[in-house]
């Protein structure tokens, strides 16, 4: 399996909104902790080390740029 980056939600705005609302009212530190827990939960749901590795690479390119 490879990482799917096509849009999978019928209503992507609703998915984004759900995550935004999960963070409302949290401190910055609590938000970081929520994100960490979310990442681990969703990674387990995917259950594929190859896909997870691709996702990590995609996300990391955006944060640290292309080597």
């Amino acid at each position: 399996m490879t990482l799917s980056t096509t849009s999978n939600f019928a209503d992507p705005d609703a998915a984004y909104r759900l995550i935004v609302e999960a963070h409302r009212g949290l401190s910055d530190e609590q938000s970081a902790a929520l994100d960490a827990a979310l990442v681990l939960t969703l990674a387990n749901h995917i259950g594929d080390l190859g896909v997870l590795r691709e996702a990590v690479e995609l996300a990391k390119r955006g944060v640290v740029g292309e080597g």
Binding site: T5, S7, P12, Y16, G62
Partner: peptide
């Protein structure tokens, strides 16, 4: 940032 290369993120740009 993701929208530059991932279609799913383009759809979330609002």
């Amino acid at each position: 940032q993701l929208a530059k290369e991932a279609d799913f993120a383009k759809r979330m740009v609002n």
